[in-house]
């Protein structure tokens, strides 16, 4: 099942739409009173969510609504403000179309974030594959950089310990909608496998018959390399786009004494066979 990100909503020609951002005290039960006020005023809530601003102090409740001409917005706002739990109410009323502007700009891991359709990302990858020399390596390299940057943030800013990062990586990629990740990794040999169910890169069929998750391979390689402080190679061995049930990646350490790619491959093949 997919989840829609409510970035905009189009009602009929007479629809009156609005977003409300209600800042309220963070205590048990405070949120439950707000939908009641909307319902009592004949307002139809289309979408809503709660976010913590400061634990135990305050949070925000954001909702997108549709209502009729009979509804008095002033009355609604006053009733919300009169609740003991409510600290502030901001809103914007519009006709027919509402676009999410209550939360701008978005932020992720200390960096500005945007929401993009998967098809857009896929288009970019496809254009690179069509036009750029060394396209696969270039896409891998982009992923590598992204993975390193993300891991650096968790290591340096969030202070995540080495052995916790697998749980974290699974969680953030799932919440970002990249796929359902499972990781089997041995911290002694630095070898392992990653499986990705519903990889966003494998979902859209492109004009290639090859594995499509090169960006993810690079991202994993960058993330592991940065966290472990050891060059790690990640290669996609199965891809949903080529008929596999899910995508699978092999994690291999790069020897401390680096060699050529051929030497690395030979060494690892022998090791795997044993």
């Amino acid at each position: 099942m997919s989840r829609d990100v409510c970035t905009f909503y189009v009602g009929d020609n007479n629809a009156t739409l609005a977003w409300f951002k209600v800042t309220l005290i963070d205590k048990q039960g405070s949120l439950s009173k707000i939908p009641v006020v909307f319902a009592d005023n004949g307002v139809n809530q289309l979408f809503g969510y709660f976010g913590l601003i400061e634990q135990g102090v305050k949070g925000k409740y954001i909702t997108f609504v549709e209502f009729t001409e009979k509804t008095s917005v002033n009355k609604l706002v006053n009733e919300l403000k009169n609740l003991d739990e409510v600290l502030d109410v901001k809103y914007h009323v519009t006709k027919k179309i509402i676009i999410q502007t209550a939360e701008f700009p978005l932020e992720m891991f200390n960096s500005r974030a945007i929401i993009s359709r998967n098809a857009t990302f896929s288009d970019i990858i496809e254009e690179i594959e069509d036009a750029a020399p060394n396209a696969n390596a270039l896409i891998f390299q982009c992923g590598l950089k992204g993975g390193m940057d993300a891991a650096r943030y968790f290591k340096e800013v969030a202070g995540i310990k080495k052995r916790d990062f697998i749980t974290l990586l699974k969680g953030i990629l799932f919440s970002a909608g990249w796929g359902v990740i499972d990781i089997d990794f041995n911290f002694d040999s630095y070898k392992g496998t990653i499986s990705v169910k519903d990889s966003f890169l494998a979902e859209i069929k492109r004009s290639t018959e090859h594995a499509q998750c090169g960006y993810l391979s690079g991202y994993f390689a960058g993330f592991f390399t940065e966290v472990l402080d050891q060059a790690i190679h990640v290669q996609e061995t199965k891809c949903k786009s080529t008929g596999a049930e899910e995508c699978e990646f092999t994690i291999l350490p790069v020897a401390k004494k680096f060699g050529t790619f051929m030497e690395q491959t030979r060494e690892d093949t022998v090791d795997t066979e044993l």
């Binding site: 270039l138 390299q141 790069v254 680096f258």
Partner: peptide
Amino acid sequence: GKALGAAWWTSARWGVEHGQLQKN
């Protein structure tokens, strides 16, 4: 090394950035 390739760690640029040339 390789400026762009599957064996990304052989890149001379990566080696410079990490203070570790590999003498390939």
